[in-house]
Simulated scan of single mutants.
Amino acid sequence: MRRAKGRWRAAAAVAAAVTVLVTPSGPSVDRAPRAAPVAAVPGLVRVPSGPTPDNSEPRKSRRAQCPAGHRVVGGGGWAFDHGHGVVALTGAEPGRDLLLQRDYFRATASEPGTGFTAGWWLEAYALCAPAASLPGYQQVSAFASDIGFATARVRCPAGKRVIGTGAAAFPDLHAGLQLFRSTGARDAAMATVRARGDHPGMIRVRVLGICTTNHAVVVATVRNLDDAAAACPSGTRVHGVGGGGSPADSGNSFLQEVYPPSQLDRASTSMTAAPDRGMVSQAICVGGTS
């Protein structure tokens, strides 16, 4: 069961087939092309990892593993520090256990380099579907590095669309995720990371896109400047989740939650603080409504 955060405020806007970015001057809309109606991927399941112990450790990792014969189509993570706003997600990305031949979605998070004495927990969530129901399935990735702030994009091969995304920040004790999601055209994935505190060195970002020939509808519902939710249209189900700050440096604010609930009807996103340029929650939804 999802744990209440106690920081929800009134909803600000609802949009279908668009991504809405809330900025200090008001919401702006990034319109995506409308997709052809298709059925949701058959056999879609959500697998939670279960939470780590609620204690203070510098870094934590959790892996949610897909059932045999399934491929990971998306997923998320939740680093819950009881409202302190200091623990950041450093990774939320798909992977494959080559020994077991099983896909998974892994979440990683860390305390700030200055330390944190209170307890916190981390949980990962995998969205998985039978391999036979995912025509053209392919994972693509890209890396980028810079000092202070880094951004990366990766594009799906021609004829394919993003159905899920993921990202990781390096080094994990000195950098955190600010954003990972699909682009407005849904043919590429993007991610940004930022140095934490006064870390002076190079940081690195890895972005991953999960591509198929399935078409998708992207929707977003804005909650407020550091906490957002994206609801799927009636008749669709969430297959991938994402969100965060703007594609530019969002200041000292990092992702804490990118969450697909068990009903598979929405995505929830929260950050450690309100980012400088606003934020978005993204649900990649597939189904009979476009």
Rank of each mutant, 00 (worst) to 15 (best):
S145R: 02
H199V: 10
Q139D: 04
R161H: 13
R161W: 09
A126K: 14
S145A: 09
E123F: 10
L134F: 14
T183G: 11
P200K: 01
S182A: 15
A158H: 05
G119Q: 02
D172K: 13
H199Y: 14
G164T: 02
A168I: 03
L122V: 01
G176M: 13
P135W: 00
R153F: 15
D172E: 14
P171W: 09
S182I: 08
D187I: 10
T183K: 08
R194D: 00
A150W: 11
A169C: 07
G166I: 15
T151W: 11
A175G: 05
H199F: 15
V140Q: 03
R181Q: 15
L127M: 14
D172R: 14
P130T: 03
L134K: 10
F143C: 05
R186S: 07
K160R: 15
A185L: 14
R153S: 12
R155P: 03
G164N: 06
K160E: 07
W120R: 05
A126N: 03
F170T: 10
M190P: 00
A129Q: 01
G159C: 02
T183C: 04
W121R: 04
C156F: 12
H174P: 00
S182Q: 15
G119S: 05
A142W: 06
R155G: 12
M190H: 05
S182F: 12
D187K: 05
V193S: 01
R196T: 12
P200R: 00
T165D: 01
A191E: 10
T183A: 09
P200V: 01
V154K: 13
V140C: 07
S133I: 04
M190L: 15
S145N: 13
Q139I: 10
A158K: 12
A118Y: 05
S133L: 07
G148E: 01
F180W: 09
Q139R: 15
R155Q: 15
A132I: 13
T183L: 15
G184P: 14
A195E: 04
P157N: 09
G119T: 02
D198S: 13
A169T: 03
Y125Q: 12
F180D: 12
